[in-house]
């Protein structure tokens, strides 16, 4: 019998490429979550990645799967207001904490209204395919909470973790500036 193959490693990249989803299963537990302000409970092993709990157990599919290894940022959510990569976050680690997904980003806005960031994205024709944009927006939202008028260097430092294959970076930068006003460095890179 041949050696076992990791579905994600496909033999050429050992150990490093095994995502947390491939770890041995622990027992199933009831995990209590607070997602977008609502109490939710799921019966899953506590080491299941939050990404898949959101997408499959709670059917919140706005949070995207891109790499499974915290390399691309498509799966970014907020945990207690801070950006986290849900693809490598065990659901047990965030039990009881406030989780916000892209679907919950407009909470606090008047009914049906977009946040100032989302509005800037729409006005600036930022999205192309749009797949990475929930993650980009969650990163940007976390950035401007911490840093209300980010400089280009601050935008670079935060947003460089999120890959956009369509190349919308210049427009993401402009939209952040448009949403927050001119930064001290004048805004233009």
């Amino acid at each position: 019998m041949g050696k076992g193959f990791d579905a994600f490693g496909l033999c050429t990249l050992p150990a490093k490429s095994v995502p947390s989803g491939g770890l041995p299963s622990k027992g199933v537990l009831e995990v209590k979550l607070k997602v977008n302000g609502e109490e939710r409970s799921v019966d899953v092993p506590e080491d299941v990645p939050l990404l898949w709990v959101l997408r499959e157990e709670l059917e919140l599919t706005g949070t995207k799967f891109g790499c499974g290894q915290a390399l691309c940022g498509a799966c970014t959510v907020h945990v207690d207001g801070k950006a986290r990569r849900s693809c490598v976050t065990a659901v047990g680690d965030v039990a009881g904490k406030a989780i916000t997904t892209i679907e919950g980003l407009t909470q606090g806005e008047a009914d049906g209204k977009l946040t100032v960031l989302q509005q800037a994205w729409v006005e600036g024709n930022v999205p192309q395919c749009g797949y990475c944009q929930p993650g980009q927006l969650m990163m940007a939202a976390a950035l401007i909470r911490r840093c209300p008028k980010p400089t280009d260097a601050q935008i670079d430092a935060t947003m460089s973790g999120s890959i956009c294959r369509c190349g919308t970076y210049p427009r993401i930068r402009s939209a952040i500036h448009a949403a927050t006003g001119q930064s001290e460095d004048g805004g233009a890179k």
């Binding site: 490693g9 496909l10 033999c11 050429t12 990249l13 490093k16 490429s17 790499c67 499974g68 290894q69 390399l71 691309c72 935008i155 670079d156 430092a157 947003m159 460089s160 973790g161 999120s162 890959i163 294959r165 190349g167 970076y169 210049p170 993401i172 930068r173 890179k189």
Partner: peptide, 22 residues
């Protein structure tokens, strides 16, 4: 017969801080 790249750590994508003004 095997591909040597796998995830974005070995198949690199341009990121925000590397993108030029256009």
């Amino acid at each position: 017969g095997a591909v040597e790249q796998g995830n974005f750590d070995t198949y690199r994508m341009m990121r925000m801080h590397e993108a030029p003004k256009i």
